[in-house]
């Protein structure tokens, strides 16, 4: 069975006055139905640009998708017209944004904004749309959904607003839900609630979920698979357990090392250095300047994605050697 969503060699550049920012560079991954894929990396690594590229919402200017394919079923979304894309957005692919405080239009009631989502893609009456909206508000565990329906966003808390955003995204039973840092702006207790909600809804709706986050802690509880991004590229991809058990890429290892984990008493380590400029990319591996295991080759040559086993991918010469040393099959 072919995957729900296939991303192949997605490349998105931002054409700025300072130069071309290679925000997403040759990114590929698959997403199955009923699967949660986490897209992980530090801020500025191209995660959000990936999400916008999938939605066809890359701000132009300065951004433009310069190559690759995004296959939803048998359609390449990148080849669709804006008008055709509008029928996909909010319908087959929906998105939840990072900032619940500013992502809702302040001058319309939350109910109206959900109704609008329904009416955009469904041939139903206003009354039916309204019923659906109340249903959705109930579904995302908003108490007194009928009462809240006529509230303006400013009367709701951040957590409540994010629930509204989720309700809005789910309005048309999307196949794919992209959640871009959905909990970052929320209090810790609320974060957990929202994540739980997302997990439950994913099961209920059978969606493929792309969860974008910089927080590996979030990933652990909810994701099935993890794609780690660095400087616009995928550096590692693995089932969630493997990532935590045996991270292959030095960057992934660094990320895990900087994450507090229960039971581990050792000191947290930080990854030295900063993310490189995405304009003047060095010829070699972009993580090489910060990498403790970097070799001479790493500074000259970009490592290809090597498939390890049947479910893991890594782009690192050092990791390849390591794995080969353990006697596992490396397929580049």
């Amino acid at each position: 069975m072919s995957p729900l969503l296939q991303v192949c060699d997605l490349t998105t550049h931002l054409f700025t006055v300072e130069g071309v920012v290679k925000a997403v560079e040759g990114l590929s991954f698959d997403l199955d139905a009923d699967e949660t894929l986490a897209l992980v990396g530090e801020s500025g690594c191209g995660k959000s640009m990936t999400a916008l590229s999938l939605m066809g919402l890359v701000p132009d200017p300065p951004g433009r998708i310069v190559g690759g394919q995004v296959l939803l079923g048998d359609r390449d979304l990148l080849q669709l017209s804006e008008h055709e894309m509008q029928k996909i957005r909010g319908n087959e692919i929906a998105m939840v944004f990072q900032e619940p405080m500013t992502s809702l239009n302040p001058v319309f009631t939350v109910g109206d904004q959900i109704v609008e989502s329904v009416l955009t893609h469904r041939q139903v009456s206003r009354r039916q749309a309204r019923e659906r909206a109340v249903e959705l508000l109930d579904l995302v565990r908003i108490p007194d959904p009928r009462g809240r329906f006529d509230d303006y966003p400013h009367r709701l808390s951040g957590g409540m607003r994010q629930r509204v955003m989720i309700a809005m995204a789910l309005a048309c039973d999307p196949d794919v839900l992209i959640a871009d840092e959905p909990t970052t702006a929320l209090d810790v207790t609320i974060q957990a609630q929202v994540l739980d909600l997302l997990g439950e809804l994913q099961g209920e709706f059978g969606m493929g979920v792309i969860l974008i986050t910089h927080d590996l802690g979030v990933v652990a509880g909810i994701a099935d698979r993890v794609v780690v991004m660095y400087a616009g590229r995928k550096v590692e991809e693995a089932p969630v357990d493997d990532i935590f058990a045996s991270p292959l890429h030095p960057y992934t290892q660094g990320l895990l090392g900087s994450m507090p984990r229960p039971g581990l008493e050792e000191r947290l380590r930080e990854i030295p250095g900063v993310i490189p400029s995405l304009i003047d990319m060095t010829p070699g591996c972009s993580f090489a300047p910060r990498c403790a295991k970097a070799m001479a080759r790493c500074r000259e040559e970009q490592p290809d994605h090597a498939t390890i086993g049947d479910a893991r991918v890594v782009a690192c010469f050092a990791a390849e050697e390591e794995v080969a040393g353990r006697g596992l099959a490396v397929d580049t």
Partner: peptide, 15 residues
């Protein structure tokens, strides 16, 4: 350029 406009676009609304 505000976030909620991106939200509106993400809903699939026309320009």
């Amino acid at each position: 350029g505000l976030d909620f406009i991106r939200t509106a676009r993400a809903k699939g609304l026309g320009e």
